[in-house]
Structures are given as C-alpha cells and as structure tokens.
Nucleic acid binder design. Structure first.
Lengths: 337, 337
DNA sequence: CTGTTAGCGCCTTCAG
DNA sequence: CTGAAGGCGCTAACAG
C-alpha cells in the first residue's frame, strides 16, 4: 500500500503538504504543487478512505435504504438507484446499500458506526417507525415518499394527487362517463403506503368536478387469475369506462386481460397506466400513461441532500417537494372526439 | 460520539478489554465481560467503521459493480442486488454500489482507497477491459458472467447453453419442426456480452440433435414497432414454429404482438421465454419459461466470495460455476401430444 | 485473565 | 508558503 508519506518522500516535501495539495485548503507554490502531483501519479497514490474518514469525520458516502424484500413494489426502484448513484458520484460520494428489512436498526447502524455522511430513505410508509429514529440521527436525511408526519425531515415525491387528476381529466375529455381504478398495489393493504390514497384523492376530486362516476376495484397481485378476476369486476357495470391502473406492476396484466376478453383498449375502452415512460413504451400496445418520473424525483432528492450537507448554504425552505407527472397519449386511449 | 474509551471508563476496564470483548479474540472473565456488555448497551456504543478499518485493514464492505447505464439490460438486475445485499448482511458485511460507467477506474478506486474487502463484478463482457485490472487488484473478486478469459478470476453464471437445450428439447417434444430465436438483447451487438452466444450454441446443438430447423431473428429494441417487425419476419416462413425469446425484455412485446396478429401462443404456436419465474407468472397469458435463477446465481457468487475472503478455508477448485436453469410449462406452449 | 503501548493513514492546528 | 506534531478510534502485539 502506498501512503501519503511515500508521496511526500518522493516529492521531497512533508506529508502534510501532500495532504494540503489534495484538499486545496491552503495555498501551495506551483513548483511544489507540481512535484507532489507528479509523485502522486507516479506512485498511483490513492488516499485511504478509512484513515481519511477517521481524521476528517467525513466518509464521502451516502447511505441508501431501499425497500427490498419489505414490499412487492421492488420493481420500479432501479431508475431511482441508478440516478441516486449517479448524483452521488457527481459530488464525489459513494453509495452504501442497506435493505429495508433491517428497519430502524439499519439507520442507527449507518449513523452510529459513521458509515455515511447522509441518508436517503425510500419506501416510506404513511406511519413509519423509522422516521422518528431518522430524525434524531444527527445526519442529514432525505425521504423519497411523504409520510403523514415527516418529523421535520425533508421529503421528495411525485405529486400523486396531480397524477390522479391528469388521468381523470384526460378520460373526461375523451368522453367516458365513468372512471374505474383497478389494480392498486397489494402492499397498500399489507403495508401502510400512502401514495395510492393521494392518487385516489386526486382522481376522485377530478371525477367529481367533471361529474363522472368513480369506482375502485381490488388489488391485482401477480398471477394471471387475479388479473382476470379484477377485470371482470371492473367491466361488470357495462358501458364504456375509462380505466386507470395506478400500479405499474398491474398495467400489463390488466391490459392483456382486457384484450383477451375482446375489450380492446383504444377502441372499446380507454386505459391509462401510472408507470414510467419506458414501461409505457415497451408495452404492446403502447400504454397511455401518467409518468412516475423516478429520475426527476431522485435528482431533486439528491440535490436537497447535498444542500443539507453543505453547512454554509441555507437549507431549502419547503419540507415537502412534489414533482409534477406528465400524461402521454399512446395507443390505449380512444381517439379524442 | 461515544467511543470504546467511554465504554471502558463506565465498565471500569481498559479500552483494549472493550475491544477484545467485541472481537472475542481472547478470553475474558464472565464478570468483566458482562460489565463491558452492559456498558456497551447502556451507552448504545457502536464501533467507528473508519477507525476499525484503519486499524484492522478490513472494511466489512463488499464492492458491487452493477451494469447501470452501460447497458439496456438493467432491468433484470434487481433480484441480483437484493440477494447480494442479503448474503452480505448475513456475513456482517455492507454493500457499496459502484456503477459500471466508471469502468476500470471504479475498480481501482474501490481497491486503492481501501473502500472494500472484496468485489462483485456484474455485466461481464466477453472481452472485458476490467478483468485484467480486477485480477491485479489484490482483493478477492467474483464475476457474475463468464468472459472469454477470466484471468484466473472465479465466475458464476447461468448455464445458458443448457437453457437453450431445454427450450429446444421442449419444443421438439411438442411436435414443432422448426425453432425461431427472436428478440435477442440489442446489447449483444453494441456490447460484447456472450451469454446469448452460449444460449444459441445450446439451442442450435439441440435442434441439430432433434433434426429441427433453427433460425435467428434480429433484436427487439424497446418500442412496439420493432417488436411488430421482428415478429413479422419470424412468421414469414409460415407453418407452426416453436418460438424462443432469449431476452426477458422482449418476451412480453413478442407475445402480445403475436396475439395482436391473431397467432395465439399455446394454440397456433409455442413460445418459450428466457426470464425469471416471477416475470413468467406475471404475464398474461403466463409464459412457459426457462428460468434465469438470479437468486441462485447470486447466492453462489457470494458463497464463493466469502470463501475467498476466508484465508483459512481452501478456495473452490473450479473457476467457472454454472447454475442449471429449469423449464416450467405454462400457458404459451401447445399441449403435449 | 487484563492492562499498556504502538501504530493504522490522514487531517489540521500550531510554529516558523 | 512549508514542516512538525498531535490526535481521530480502534486493533493487536507485548507485558505482566
């Protein structure tokens, strides 16, 4: 292992000078600076992370708590991970992955052992036991998701109420006279997620405003039979409903169950999914969707987190930041009148 | 911050005794042991990870290099991450996430800065510039994927050749007289992944053995038009082909494009996908599939990695370990004769 | 069985 | 502008 002392010896300076060259925390003459930099890359020196963390009290690591295992909704988190990792690297930080099945213990471990400088907490439940713990950690925390009580922590999430409105506004404009929500994530029942509530509140309000019927059908767990049963119930009232599927996992099963039954979205009914644009485009037929914007949400979360890490810069005033979804017309909604 | 010195003071012992109680690396009398443990949980002491790493030269961290961004095949990696994180925690390790877009630099950073004790490298290309680098790192490395030359590194992967055989054997048994492979991942062309080659080798060999025709159709990038074009070409020769889709991303698009064309898998043709059982079951109709077994592959990889980390235990003799896939009949293959 | 001590590699104050 | 020196919190010899 090559240390900063080795670099110092080769450059003919003291070890502290090497340190100052790397941190830039005091001015160095161009000559010695060059000698040090040359030595560094001659020896391919890299600072030891543990030593640096010990001395500086900063790890350059962001802890990321992901809802693996805890929920079935594990599917949509990849773009979050990807974006979070990218933003972290852009600020010279690494990402330490912690699974949610550790619960609050994962948080206290991250902070107590000084494994990271800041924490991103995903899979937030409406009433989440980890939040009071997170709030007392003494480490900046950002929540992706909005709990009932954030205990003063900053949150970022999609504006699910607006998402519900967008979907219903579109269906009203297409001439449907009733709206059926179908295929809520099954976790809504087991766990205490609240984004579906927010979505329903938005869609119900919009339906009322447009004078449309508004009903809700049971969750669609994975498996073809469940999808078929749910679709059956959704179509029971007859007519030409506008169907909304606020669960990216259920969009394809519902869509293809409809087709299998001879009810073709885009002709007989309209179907709008709540899913990423990528998922919507990959489907056959392509699904008209309200986007989940995981990348935007993640970017804003990381932006806030790094503001919180900067002791100088003032913190964002708003505690809750909502990202606006967009609706994109594709093949599963009927043509506009 | 509470340190082991605080614990020592409260317990009335020396600091090193606290350390030895925690590590168990020397015998301690039950009395002092208890006093120390009581002090530890009275103060809710947790050892500082940086200090421990510095002194012990072990970080208790596994570096995980994931193929985010580098490829389009980012979708199937969640179960890998989940399983890898779980196995790591089971051995009291954490996981540091590094994205592949850093290339070999990510590896040298992980090792050079002593950020981790071992590395899991995913998204392996047939000829992968990172492998010679990884082999010289002085840190145990496990590859998930098999390159042309592993440079002495251990690898784990699905047995893709066997996967190809299983699919073709099944189609032969169902009375199809030709096999069409359709929807290879587009990365095969851009990047230099080799698992599709292995799959094709297996399927071609099996087809020869059964006296079946064997042809290959272009990749299916995301988007409905591409899927439609590819299916068109696959059906061009007429008849009642057995279709194999060795790309989990393309399974649903191909399936529904066929249905859209009035060619119903399970009745007019047979379709076998290469995808996880979860994906196969979630589809409507459920897809007969050869499983990718990401959890098994990950578990074996982590098992080998921890063997490599144990200086005592002898290392696995075999450099390449292949996991056997399984075929499960569902709704997209015709009934057996 | 326990305490004392010397680092691990780096950051940062204090001297010059 | 640069060096010397102390200490971050822990592990692991070395003494008893």
């Amino acid at each position: 292992m090559v240390t900063s002392r080795d670099v110092a010896r080769v450059a003919g300076v003291s070890q502290s000078t090497v340190s100052y060259v790397m941190s830039g925390r005091r001015s160095i003459s161009p000559q010695t600076r060059k000698r040090v930099l040359d030595a560094i890359d001659q020896l391919t020196y890299q600072p030891n992370a543990g030593a640096r963390a010990l001395a500086s009290q900063r790890t350059q690591v962001v802890g990321l708590v992901v809802p693996f295992g805890a929920s079935a909704d594990t599917a949509g988190i990849l773009p979050f991970l990807e974006t979070i990792a990218g933003c972290a690297r852009a600020e010279d930080h690494d990402v330490l992955l912690v699974t949610a099945d550790e619960g609050a213990a994962g948080l206290t471990r991250l902070a107590g052992r000084a494994l990271c400088d800041a924490i991103v907490l995903m899979g937030i439940e409406a009433v989440d036991a980890r939040i009071p713990v997170a709030a007392e950690l003494g480490v900046p925390v950002i929540l992706i998701g909005v709990p009932d009580d954030s205990a003063g922590l900053h949150c970022v999430d999609l504006d699910f109420a607006l998402a519900g409105e967008l979907a219903v506004d579109e269906l009203a404009g297409l001439g449907h006279d009733r709206v059926v929500l179908i295929g809520h994530p099954a976790e809504v029942i087991d766990r205490d997620l609240n984004y579906v509530r927010r979505f329903q509140r938005g869609s119900a309000a919009a339906a009322r405003r447009h004078g449309l019927g508004h009903s809700v059908v049971d969750p669609v767990p994975p498996g073809t039979d469940a999808a078929r049963a749910a679709v059956e119930r959704a179509l029971a009232d007859g007519g030409r409903p506008g169907i909304v599927v606020p669960n990216s996992q259920a969009v394809e099963p519902v869509l293809h169950t409809l087709i299998e039954r001879g009810v073709v979205p885009g002709r007989d009914v309209s179907l709008i999914g709540l899913c990423t644009d990528a998922d919507a485009e990959a489907s056959v037929p392509a699904v008209t969707n309200v986007s989940l914007e995981p990348r935007d949400v993640s970017r804003r979360a990381m932006h806030i987190l790094f503001q919180l890490l900067d002791r100088d810069g003032q913190h964002p005033a708003e505690l809750v930041e909502l990202v606006a979804p967009r609706l994109t017309r594709r093949e599963t909604t009927v043509p506009p009148p």
